[in-house]
Amino acid sequence: MKINIKGLILNTFKESARNKMFYLLIFFGILFALSSKLISFLTLGDAMKVLKDTGLAAINFFCVLIAIFTGINLVYKEVEKKTIFNILSKPVTRGHFIIGKFFGLALTMLLALAAMAVIFFLLVFLVGGGFDLKILLYFFMLYLELLIIVAISLLFSSFSTPILSFIFTVSLYLIGHIMWTFNEFKMLLQSKLWIKFAQFLYYIMPNLDKFNIKNDVVLDLPLQATTILFSVLYALVYILALLTVTVMIFRRREFI
C-alpha cells in the first residue's frame, strides 16, 4: 500500500506560509530581535549578554505565538470549511491526515525559526560576537519545544474550536514552564491520594522548562550532553504520545 503524506505536508506548509498572520508574527519577531540591539546600547553592562537575553526571548515569544495560532486553526478550518471531505474521500487515513498536518506545521516552524535565527546571528556579528554553537543549540531546543506546542494545539484543534484550543494550549504552555512548582505543591499535600494525583499530573503535563537553556546560553554556563539528550528523547516520546491521542480522537470524529 503506497501512502503519500508528502502532499499533505506540503499543502499544510503552503497553507501556513500563505497566511498573512504568519508573516506578521515573523516580522514582529525580527523587529523585536533587532530592537534588542538598541536595548543593548541603552543598558549598562555587557551589551552581548543583553542582546542575547532580549533577542532570544523575543524570538521565543513570537515563535510560540506562531505555533499556537497556526496549530489551533489547522484541523478546525479543514472541518469547518469542509475541505476535509476532499482529503478523507481519497486513499488517506485519518492518521495520515494528522501526521501530515503535524509535519507540515513542523516545516513551517522550521522556516520561521530559521528566518529569525539568521537575523539574530547577523546581529551578534554586528555587535562583534562570533558564531556561538550554544545559540544554535538554543534554537534547536526551542524548536523541540515548538514541536510539542504544535502537537498540543493540533490535539485540541482536532475536537474543539480555535478559542477553546487557544485557551487550552496557552494554559498547558504556562503550566509547562512552572512544572517545578508541582514538587513544592506536593510537599503541602497530606493525603496519599492527592500526592499520587499531583505526581500523575507532573508526569502527564508537558515539562517545557527542559528545553529552556537561555540562561545557560546568555551566562555561558556549561551544558551537559546527557541533559540535552534526555530532553530530545523526552520531546520525541511526548510528541509521539500526543499524536497517538490526537489520531485516536480524530478517528472517532464524524463530519456532518
Binding site: N4, G7, L10, N11, E15, R18, T83, F85, N86, P91
Partner: peptide, 21 residues
C-alpha cells in the same frame, strides 16, 4: 465542494494527484 482558497486550480489538482501518488 469547498477547496483551499489560497491555491489555484492547478495546485489543487496537483495536491489531489499527490494523494494518489
Amino acid at each position: 465542494p469547498y477547496f483551499y482558497d489560497y491555491l489555484n486550480a492547478n495546485e489543487l489538482l496537483n495536491f489531489s494527484a499527490s494523494l494518489y501518488s
